[in-house]
């Protein structure tokens, strides 16, 4: 999506699947990084490192991104951002979403991982309409 710098605003909602061991703690971790101004960096890193997302690994990623590790750990342990996650899960439920990732491009629903060209086609069409 780097071809579209300045053209795309990406909003990320957390919908960890409850039967995966590290999905929830990963969502807590990315929001903890967000609190320290490094959401984009942690988001990218977790997508790259998945499925190595156990607590110790997450803490090592926080170190890698130069976060305040004590604050980060505390945020995980107290589940500081669980209400944000619950809100996103509730929203997903209201929208009848059962697959991740689900992406809405200007409101148009795309379910599951698609190849780059699939997204590009929709985005280019949206950009043409916008002009």
């Amino acid at each position: 999506m780097k071809d579209y710098k300045g053209k795309i605003r990406l909003v990320v909602k957390q919908t960890p699947y409850k039967y995966r061991d590290y999905a929830y703690i990963s969502s807590l971790a990315v929001l903890a990084a967000h609190e320290q101004g490094k959401f984009a960096e942690m988001h990218e890193l977790l997508l790259k490192k998945s499925p190595k997302l156990d607590k110790d690994s997450l803490i090592s990623y926080a170190k890698e991104l130069d976060l305040d590790v004590a604050k980060f750990k505390d945020s995980l342990e107290t589940k500081k951002f669980s209400s944000q996650i619950e809100k996103d899960l509730q929203l997903a439920k209201e929208l009848d979403l059962y697959n991740t990732p689900t992406i809405f491009i200007n409101g148009i629903k795309v379910i599951g991982n698609r190849d780059y060209m699939y997204y590009k086609k929709i985005i280019d069409k949206e950009l043409r309409h916008e002009k």
Partner: peptide
């Protein structure tokens, strides 16, 4: 959390699970 400019013509809303 949002990545990218607020005035971008395209808004992508992504529901993720990292695992």
């Amino acid at each position: 959390p949002v990545i990218g400019p607020n005035n971008a013509p395209i808004t992508m809303i992504k529901f993720v699970d990292y695992q």
